[in-house]
């Protein structure tokens, strides 16, 4: 396992711990973003295992291309991820009017029967 792979996995793990340990809702959402950055990084890493060149097939001599499939896939996931992030932040904005501290334990006390 390369150092890069270890670092990417650490990013994912840190994001996950952030979701659990942070008390504030905004911080939780940001931690989720860190985690998804880690996942995106892992896709890019796997794509570049066979080569680093941009996969455009018009170069004269054969070079080691990066695998285009994971990159194409992660593009979709990035778009979905950021739209969900935006949607959640809008929800948080609405919630912050009544619970300005945005502490999850407070919100749960308010809104769970």
């Amino acid at each position: 396992m390369s150092i890069l792979e270890a670092l990417v996995l650490a990013t994912i793990l840190f994001g996950f711990f952030g979701i659990i340990l942070k008390k504030n809702l905004i911080m939780k959402i940001l931690s989720m973003d860190v985690m998804s950055t880690g996942v995106i990084g892992y896709f890019v890493l796997v794509a570049s295992q066979r080569g680093l060149f941009t996969p455009i097939a018009n170069q004269k001599e054969a070079v080691a291309y990066a695998d285009p499939v994971p990159q194409a896939v992660i593009l979709t996931a990035i778009v979905i991820g950021f739209s969900i992030q935006a949607l959640m932040l809008v929800g948080v904005m609405k919630l912050s009017r009544d619970t300005p501290t945005l502490e999850v334990s407070e919100i749960e006390k308010h809104y769970t029967p």
Partner: peptide, 19 residues
């Protein structure tokens, strides 16, 4: 506010699982 929180909680759990 309650419905937004219930929805947000759902989205949060499901999105983390999907990661």
């Amino acid at each position: 506010d309650r419905s937004i929180w219930v929805g947000l909680r759902y989205l949060f759990v499901s999105n983390t699982a999907m990661l």
